[in-house]
Nucleic acid binder design. Structure first.
Lengths: 229, 229
DNA sequence: TAGATTGTTAATCGATTAACAATC
DNA sequence: TAGATTGTTAATCGATTAACAATC
């Protein structure tokens, strides 16, 4: 079971969510003020609106050297430690299926390099798109997806095709030896146990926003359970 | 009940993540087999690999009528209840800032209608983009963002501009009365307390995938329970 | 009735927060 | 030293899972 595996090794999913935020903060900090050398957990906590003990624990978990009382952590070292913990220094190679708008956004996005993700190639069903080169990446016909997964020995597949095609594309990736799938299609994918599917759940995010608004509306009205709009 | 209690009591974020999955499953189920009328919590749980008590509790929380022992819930009703709980039947209006690839993907995506989100208009800095109409939505100059937020009385702002511009855009939205921000820029945004920022944390997702791969690799090597460092 | 499924109450688990001694 | 900050141990909180009686 995926959840149990992760638990046994002891990296909480929460930590993986917070670390990029710390990293972000530290990087902008360094950019803004180059003379700054050290940073303390309470400072980070205050800046990001988090509990300071939590930040301290997180830093302790990833930092290669202990923090110093009264001074804190060396920013540069900390950035390095977080990056290496998150695996940004190793390169994960990926293929992408579905070169529509969202897919193209991925292909064009330069930032992934910094996070250790390299998209090698893209695949699409549409013959008009096949053969194009987007941001230096070739678009191949979708029926060669499996073949290329095997040949390139990539581990990550990104799915940005419409929901109807997603399971089929997913199956091809799995047969091609893909181990982790980043799924943007709003559908539940069936995969063997050894494959991880991460659903980029836009719809859940939307629900969260929508819910916040519903709460605020009813707060203002003083009505409990008022309709949303 | 469900929808009524939503506003008053805080709903766990977890529930909001699981509900769209149930919905998804139920919809595909209905499409595949139209003669199916009822469904039980254990069935859903098995299909989605979740604990059955959890599913039962979730359903109890959103369902308008109680489930029947031995038969379960009416699929059609359940779909309706979940949709209404998630607010898909009410429309949340939004504006979008940043009509690059990602932004355009949003503007073109038809699916949001089903989830109660309507993007009215988009804004961009680039003069070449301003004036265009993408998927029926006008692209306006970014410096009119605040003005239009106020005039249109929208509640949701979607940020798909580069990180450097994100805080500035965010501030304009806040001044324009936006209450919830869906942020795709990889940066921490500062907002007043009453505004909700949901960071679509692509980078954290990536970390999760990358982490899964790292674990699998070390599993294969026969190393168990070792931490990454 | 017998068996499946429900909803609820209690136990467990994990993650967050609080308290505090150690250290520079 | 005095004060800030560290890391650790204990308490709290919330969410998940287990146990079970009620019901069709």
């Amino acid at each position: 079971m995926g959840a149990q595996e992760r638990a046994s090794i002891g990296i909480s999913k929460q930590l993986l969510i917070r670390l990029p935020n710390y990293l972000n903060y530290l990087k902008t900090l360094r950019k803004e003020n180059e003379s700054l050398i050290n940073i303390s957990a309470p400072t980070i906590a205050a800046a990001l609106g988090q509990n300071e003990v939590q930040v301290r624990k997180d830093l302790a978990a990833v930092s290669s050297s202990a923090g110093k009382p009264k001074t804190g952590f060396c920013i540069k070292e900390l950035i390095h430690d977080i990056e290496s913990f998150l695996g940004y220094d190793s390169v994960d190679e990926a293929v992408l299926a579905g070169a529509g708008n969202l897919g193209r956004a991925f292909l064009s996005y330069k930032g992934f390099d910094d996070f250790g993700l390299k998209i090698l190639m893209a695949f699409d069903k549409d013959e008009k798109v096949v053969g194009q080169i987007i941001a230096g990446k070739h678009i191949m016909p979708i029926d060669r997806l499996q073949e290329f997964c095997q040949r390139l020995k990539v581990n990550i597949g990104i799915i940005t095709v419409p929901a109807e095609q997603a399971q089929e594309v997913c199956d091809q990736m799995v047969r091609g030896g893909i181990l982790a799938i980043w799924n943007f299609a709003p559908i539940h994918l069936s995969v063997p146990d050894h494959v991880l599917v991460h659903n980029e759940n836009m719809v859940a995010s939307l629900a969260k926003l929508s819910n916040h608004l519903a709460e605020r509306m009813s707060d203002e009205d003083g009505i409990k359970g008022g309709t949303k709009k």
